[in-house]
Design a protein around this nucleic acid. Structure first.
Lengths: 109, 109
DNA sequence: TACTTTAGCAACCATAAAGTTGCATATTAA
DNA sequence: TTAATATGCAACTTTATGGTTGCTAAAGTA
């Protein structure tokens, strides 16, 4: 369907999803779908969809206990985004001389 | 309309846009819209739209010369994404102990 | 057993997004 | 001045996306 990087970037491109993810990261314990829903002005089903997207991206892990599903954040996949950006870091501060730097640092690699 | 982080993440969440951006970053000189279009199996208008999105995110700078518009990549805005991720780095390798680390590093801030 | 809570699933809606075609316009070349 | 090139703009199509409502089922509780 779509590559991992795209899945990850899209998951995080939605502001609501970033909020949910953040809430889970700083939560003192795993939160159920309903608990998360209560923190947002949105239906439970809406939250469920976002959780699914985050889960697909590997940013959330679900743990079913009885009738509840507890969500845990997993920040690890963000490493992949960070890694993608690494290449462009060399161009951050010399946007006008992209070529030179690129050639100098990669031609003999 | 939407916050900067969202604009940025969305710009970069599209694989075609990442390709265009990459092509511009490693290009030896600014490329015109037509020149970029020739590198992609897409109409010129399609590319124009992507360029517009990248421009809105600040990742591309346009420079009109005569009837042509030359595009330059600007990687600087990626810093903002990187900055966003910084907070979550502390959770990369201890996804199960999010709370503890968070409390230890931010409670007295 | 009856009631309540947690959640999934499906259908639906509105809007955004990716990409297209067609046409008008400005600039450059012949 | 005529032709060719580079582009923008607008309209349109298709498919995703964010969100909703309504219903069903499973798991606890009284």
């Amino acid at each position: 369907m779509q590559d991992r990087l795209t899945t990850l970037f899209k998951a995080v491109a939605d502001p609501t999803r970033r909020e949910i993810f953040h809430a889970l990261v700083i939560a003192s314990s795993a939160l159920s779908i309903t608990q998360i829903s209560n923190q947002f002005e949105m239906t439970r089903q809406g939250v469920t969809k976002h959780i699914k997207t985050l889960e697909d991206a590997g940013l959330v892990h679900l743990d079913t206990k009885g009738r509840e599903r507890f969500c845990n954040a997993n920040a690890k996949p963000l490493k992949e985004l960070s890694k993608w950006m690494t290449f462009y870091e060399q161009f951050w501060d010399n946007s006008l001389d992209n070529l030179d730097h690129f050639l100098n640092t990669s031609k003999d690699a």
